[in-house]
Structures are given as structure tokens and as C-alpha cells.
């Protein structure tokens, strides 16, 4: 089933801003004070996506592995910045180790999908590598932020218990075994919930996009299944990896809790 792609004209794209104007008027009427954010948000959406379109166009046409690698690294760096903004703990320097763990786990997973599942040739073909990589980063970024916050909250809440365990001879990993499990689980729950509800509650964005581009829904679902499973795997791998490092730097070499 192939349908012709309808290219929306820029005039029609601009017409959709009427919805934003209507929302702005509602905000004024209800005194929600959202007008400024709506205006800035709309301008940013136009500019950021326009920029992304040009960048992707250039990257897709160049097909240079170095450029793909650079763009992917740039995306991971910004995801790590977003995580560090969301995590409330500021004393323990987790940014660099978390960035390294994200980089490593996303690279492993993305290369695995490219070479084994989709079997793209060459494996770094940007039209596959970048969008799928982006989905991995976007999803597991949230999971890592939730996991790290849960971890530090647990350390603060259970400080006395952890100190007792350390005093009785436990190592950092022995004294925080349950905290670690809880932190990984809390990050995993949204992607496991997504597995349960996909296709019933919502048609996923990627599948919708493929179908709008004229792809047969039966091909689109295969991609979607791969993506869903991939997101669970990458979320688990990256958050476990990141939490291992965060756990290590939460204690000194002499098993003292740094918080």
C-alpha cells in the first residue's frame, strides 16, 4: 500500500499557528499568563525544526560516518545536560560519568540494531542511524533522570540505615542493594507501561509518521515492535550502567557516604 506523499505548503503550516493564537486568547481571557511561553515556544519550534531539517538534509546527503558520529554525540551531550538539569543532587559530580555511560550504551545498542536487526548497509546510514538513535536517547534520557533522582532521594532518606550497614562491614553495593533495584525499576516503569498500552491507547509517533509517508502499516508495525523492544532494552542498559557509576561516586574509596 503506497500512497502519494502530500507535501504541506508553508502557507498551510503557518495557518496552524491560528490554533496557537486561539490558545493565546484563551490564556488572556482566563489569565493563565501563558502567552509569552506560547509565543517563544512556537518560534522555537519553527526555528529548531527548520534547523534540524537542514542539518538532517545535509547529514543524510553526506553519508559521512564521522559527521553521523558527531551529530549523535552532540545529541547525547544535550540529553546529558537535560538530565543534569532535572537531577536535584548537585554536590556529587555525576555529569561526566553519566555522559560516558550514555554514550557507550547508546552506541552499542544503535550499532546492534543497524547491523543485526535492520541490516542497513553501511551501518551508519544516517537516515536510519540518527532518527532511531534519537528515539533511544529521548526515551532513556527520561529513565536515567528518574533513576538518578530516585537513587539520591533513597540515599538521603535511608542515610541512617546505610551508615549502619557500612558500620557493620557492608560494602557500598551491599548497603544499597535495595536502593539500586528501586532506582532501576522506577526508571523502567514508563517504558514497560508503554509496552502494555502500545497500539491500544495510542498509535506511536514513528508508526504514524511512516504511514503518513505511505508505508504499508504491516511494515510500519515491524519497525514499531523493534523500536518498542529496543527502547526497553536501551532504557534498562543505560540506566543500569549510569547507576553503577553514580553508585560508585556516591561513596569514597573508604566506604564513606558522600551525601
Amino acid at each position: 500500500m503506497q500512497t502519494e506523499i502530500i507535501n504541506i505548503s508553508w502557507l498551510n503550516v503557518t495557518i496552524t499557528t491560528l490554533l496557537i493564537i486561539a490558545t493565546g486568547l484563551c490564556s488572556l481571557y482566563l489569565k493563565l499568563k501563558l502567552e509569552q511561553d506560547l509565543l517563544i515556544g512556537t518560534i522555537r519550534t519553527f526555528l529548531q525544526l527548520l534547523l534540524l531539517g537542514y542539518v538532517l538534509n545535509a547529514v543524510f546527503s553526506l553519508r559521512n560516518p564521522f559527521i553521523v558520529f558527531l551529530l549523535f554525540s552532540f545529541m547525547i551531550f544535550f540529553a546529558a545536560r537535560i538530565i543534569s538539569g532535572r537531577v536535584r543532587e548537585k554536590r556529587i559530580p555525576y555529569f561526566a560519568p553519566v555522559l560516558a555511560s550514555m554514550f557507550l550504551s547508546y552506541m552499542i545498542i544503535n550499532i546492534f540494531v543497524m547491523t543485526v536487526i535492520i541490516q542497513v548497509k553501511p551501518w551508519y546510514q544516517p537516515v536510519y542511524f540518527i532518527p532511531i538513535g534519537g528515539m533511544i536517547i529521548g526515551n532513556s534520557m527520561n529513565a536515567i533522570a528518574i533513576s538518578i533522582n530516585t537513587w539520591f532521594d533513597g540515599l538521603r532518606k535511608e542515610y541512617d540505615r546505610i551508615e549502619l550497614f557500612l558500620a557493620l562491614g557492608a560494602s557500598p553495593s551491599e548497603s544499597t542493594r535495595e536502593n539500586f533495584k528501586g532506582a532501576v525499576k522506577s526508571g523502567m516503569i514508563p517504558s514497560i507501561n508503554a509496552l502494555m498500552s502500545v497500539g491500544i491507547v495510542s498509535i506511536p509517533g514513528m508508526m504514524t509518521g511512516q504511514m503518513l509517508a505511505g508505508i504499508d502499516p504491516l511494515i510500519a508495525i515491524k519497525y514499531q515492535i523493534v523500536i518498542m523492544l529496543l527502547l526497553v532494552g536501551s532504557t534498562a542498559l543505560s540506566s543500569i550502567f549510569a547507576l553503577h557509576i553514580v553508585r560508585k561516586i556516591s561513596f569514597t574509596a573508604n566506604y564513606q557516604l558522600k551525601i
Binding site: D160, R161, E163, L164, A167, G169, S171, N254
Partner: peptide
């Protein structure tokens, strides 16, 4: 080694935490 110290010199916190 830190594990040797914690085995031999045992600190009991003020509040007796129970699991």
C-alpha cells in the same frame, strides 16, 4: 583495608535501626 577496620572496630549509631 577498610573492610578489615570495619570488621574489627564497630561503630554503633545513636539510634538503633532495625530492619
Amino acid at each position: 583495608q577498610i573492610s578489615e577496620i570495619r570488621r574489627s572496630i564497630l561503630y554503633l549509631p545513636q539510634l538503633p535501626h532495625m530492619i
